[in-house]
Simulated assay, not measured.
Amino acid sequence: MSLKFSVGDLTIHRIIEQEVPFFPALEMLPGLTAEVLAENRAWLREAKALDDQDVLILCFQSYVVKTPHHTILVDSCIGNDKPRPQRPKWNMKTDDTYQRALDVAGVSVEDIDFVMCTHLHVDHVGWNTRLENGRWVPTFPKARYLFAKQEFDYWTEQNAKAEVPPFADSVLPVVEAKRHELVGNDHQIGDHVRILPTPGHTPGHVAFAMGRGKDDAVFSGDLIHSPLQTLYPELSPKFDVDQAQAAKTRRSFLERYCDTDTLCCTAHFPSPSVGKIRRKGNGFVCAAM
């Protein structure tokens, strides 16, 4: 299993925190029928994307991307010491899996120049902060944390109605430490990093395209969770705020990168998680590298 990829002048490391059965396929994807699942069960199991009980297997990971100028962390996964009672495998974790994965990649928390979140859901912001003397402090002390303004505003509004724990313990402490920037969809970092609006999963969800002058790699976040959605882009998970918009965005994204050399780095596909988009019938596949 490869944890390191090179494309153009980018070096990409996968930082895996968990790879586990997550949700029953028919429950997570409300538009999925038992018949369609049966037609696809064999290849999904072979790809380690579905277990023997028809539960979707998801990988929870970050990507560290080294450009010629910066070291960037894309999404910060689940985190430790975070109260997540609805998710027993995430609740008050204390393991060193994430730190060991960074070590294997030869990266320290001090090396990260930018932390970029595709959106602000619990499993994409967790390591934004760590517990130190009873306080949440930024995990990556030298990094600027970039949050899409539309996404940040949406969660600020939700948090004002009732506390959203991941926002309270993994986003607001970064703001209080003055380590954040709210950025628009036209924001770029040098000539290597661009934002691609991909709304639907959340109102301000974005993907990140990287490469000098062309998209050598794209980081899709929760635009897509399972290889089954590549083949059937209309299948939106129940977690999408706007399932119809998410389906439209997903197909548009897959069309954009279909039959190109762009490396698609997914947030949740089972290992190897990274591939190139190719057309298959009325859908697509993410062909592993």
Rank of each mutant, 00 (worst) to 15 (best):
E163A: 14
V64M: 09
R278P: 00
K48V: 08
E176Y: 10
P68T: 01
D222I: 00
T71F: 09
F208H: 10
Q18E: 12
D215R: 07
L29W: 11
V104N: 12
E157L: 10
L120D: 01
S76K: 01
H201N: 14
D216R: 09
S271F: 10
Q245V: 14
S252E: 15
K89Q: 14
A47N: 12
A217S: 02
S62E: 04
A288F: 13
V171L: 02
T230K: 09
L10N: 07
Y232H: 14
G134S: 02
V74D: 07
G200L: 08
A177M: 03
P83G: 00
T118K: 02
I78S: 01
Q229H: 06
L58P: 03
A160P: 00
V164Y: 07
D95P: 02
P237V: 09
D81K: 13
P227Y: 05
A267R: 12
A25D: 09
S220M: 13
D169P: 01
V7R: 12
A287P: 03
A209I: 11
P138Q: 11
L37M: 03
R144Q: 15
P83N: 10
L120I: 03
S2G: 07
K238L: 12
L29E: 09
M289D: 14
A244Y: 11
F167Y: 11
A177R: 06
V206Q: 06
P141R: 07
R41S: 05
A160V: 07
A38Y: 09
A42T: 13
I15C: 00
T262H: 01
W127E: 10
L37C: 03
A160R: 14
I57C: 07
L58H: 15
V64E: 11
D222Q: 06
Q53V: 08
K142L: 13
E234Y: 11
T71G: 08
A168I: 04
A247H: 03
